[in-house]
Design a protein around this nucleic acid. Structure first.
Lengths: 347, 347
DNA sequence: TTGAAAGCGCTAACAT
DNA sequence: ATGTTAGCGCTTTCAA
């Protein structure tokens, strides 16, 4: 037949509604009515139209349909740093559940924590007329998103709130979570408590650390900075930091891991080196293996975060002028053993 | 301003290219060229166009653009049973990586293991002219998918091959994996080996069981059926089955968990009941906590599965008539301790 | 119940 | 370098 350029679907030669109508011996509009499930088509003609469509392998051109109706695409975009981190699929699931009620689909994309990739994905999604954007952003300044908002695109920030921009957001009570973790460890007698945290610039990281610092200072522990380590965004980085701390003279007696990757790293290194006595451990994020491993965590609920984000996006789709809203979800300390290990008696 | 029906974006009143062109004092086509990044536009006019677009908050109508160019949407659909199962995000990530090379986005949807939901999602995605479909199917008969193939939609089945349909697929060597697990346990002296498997109708389940059965029979173990339990699609179901087996007279000395949920259930129940001696455990799927928990697994590579699926989809997009291809990915047994526990000496 | 005609907003082809 | 014209395939008037 015709020679198409490689990589391009043979779009132009697809059967159109006109072909279907011709084959069925009806007018264009009648075919449209039948296929669109509209009333006022005689049963006989409807059947002929369906048969013709079937025979031709007809598929409605969605672009033409949307254009004619003046509608946008029924899909919402989600940009995360890494879909392989179990936190995000849980969020995506909650979001998808919520979107289903509005008959919307979810398009996902990974930024790999790169602000440039994130922004190019955001523009890309906006250009396709995605109905709304949900972003777990890797950017430190979100003023650029203003452009998308101005074009009528609802943007909801999840996990990490927008900086220098007025926007909807859903976040966890990170300060409260950090404080709860520290109080828990303090009550088990610990004073040398290490924080193995994520990238410095992450607001989640900062808040968790701030919450912990506040609790420690209030308890009279003022030298906590000595055991703070950051940049533990993956398991290997976390392990390295734990190893370094354990090798030091005044090794911490307890670890607070600031995210699920850091927690895995802390636990792996502790199991690998098996120091005696074993330091206490509290993690952030509700990992599925917390119970089997007996790891105490400050549990959050990413699925709920996804649902709330979906709710906010849908709400703004209905009413563009509503005031922006920031939802703060609570965290809960769940004891599984590792966080209750007592500090060794002072020498 | 105008009253729009609730829930509908104000699409009709959005500025169009015509408005931008008018404001910039250029022709429609020049505005189109400038915004489309085409050459042959003077710097001065280009600037005026951009300024006008900015001022109006103009956003190109993707539907109109696609229609005019005779193109389809640049996105691929992925249907899985449950995005919260860590297996699927890993697959989605590999797939997204591969699609990025073709500048395609990924739209995800969950079927919740329901054939009806799966099919309605498949149709929905097809109606939107998604470029291709990747499906981890919950259906037992895939002849309906023929309809989508006939309409030129590439469909790639992942993890679970198509039944009664000729289609591209990427699967694991489940038989080999099942055999490897059984051989490993046999070599540690076990004869009473339990299989905690997924739903009966799942081809993955069947193959893993078949591989195990083959190895056991070859080793002269013929009563393996007594310890086979199925339906362990979630953690709770797996735990219940393990509990029942442990309570019986001739409790198994080893467990082979047929999927990552079953594995978590087996491990949770064993830790909870702490039988002595502790049965050996081998799991299927490469869970992130295998190493810390010391759990021996038959590791698969869902990311690679995603990449290969993307490759197949892109290949069929380029050449609709290529013969269908089924890629079988290998599995590897990775020892972490739990699978090497010896069977107790016979009484 | 059916159909003809007019456009949705954009881009491609062809001028100029 | 710029503009004019004619559609893309569908849905929406409106008339029959």
């Amino acid at each position: 037949m015709t020679n198409q350029p490689a990589g391009q679907a043979d779009v132009t030669r697809r059967p159109t509604l006109t072909h279907v109508a011709e084959l069925a011996g009806v007018s264009l509009k009648t075919a449209s009515r039948a296929l669109g499930g509209e009333p006022y088509v005689s049963a006989a003609k409807r059947e002929r139209v369906f048969a013709a469509a079937q025979q031709l392998g007809y598929q409605r051109n969605a672009a033409a349909s949307l254009l004619a109706r003046g509608q946008l695409f029924d899909s919402v975009g989600l940009i995360t740093s890494d879909l392989a981190n179990p936190f995000y699929p849980a969020l995506a699931k909650g979001l998808e559940d919520e979107l289903r009620t509005g008959d919307l689909l979810l398009t996902v994309a990974n930024s790999g924590e790169s602000p440039e990739i994130e922004w190019s994905l955001a523009r890309n999604l906006a250009d396709r007329q995605t109905k709304a954007l949900i972003v777990a952003s890797a950017m430190a300044d979100h003023t650029v998103y203003r452009e998308l908002q101005d074009r009528g695109m609802p943007v909801v920030f999840v996990d990490r709130p927008a900086q220098q921009l007025d926007a909807d957001a859903v976040v966890f009570d990170n300060i409260g979570g950090g404080r709860a973790a520290a109080l828990h460890l303090l009550s088990a007698g610990h004073r040398r408590i290490s924080f193995i945290g994520d990238y410095d610039w992450l607001p989640t990281h900062r808040d968790r650390l701030a919450g912990m610092a506040d609790a420690l200072e209030s308890a009279g522990v003022t030298d906590w900075r000595r055991w703070v380590r950051t940049g533990a965004h993956d398991v290997a980085a976390a392990r390295a930091r734990v190893a370094e701390l354990l090798d030091a003279q005044d090794a911490p007696t307890a670890f607070f891991a600031g995210n699920n990757r850091a927690l895995l790293g802390v636990v792996e290194e502790l199991i690998y080196r098996a120091p005696d006595p074993l330091p206490a451990v509290v993690g952030f994020d509700n990992v599925e293996w917390a119970r089997v491993l007996g790891v105490t965590v400050v549990a959050d609920d990413p699925e709920e975060m996804g649902r709330q984000a979906g709710r906010l996006a849908l709400a703004r789709l209905t009413d563009r002028d509503r005031p922006t809203e920031t939802i703060v979800l609570p965290t809960t300390l769940v004891s599984h053993g590792s966080g209750e290990r007592r500090a060794p008696a002072p020498a």
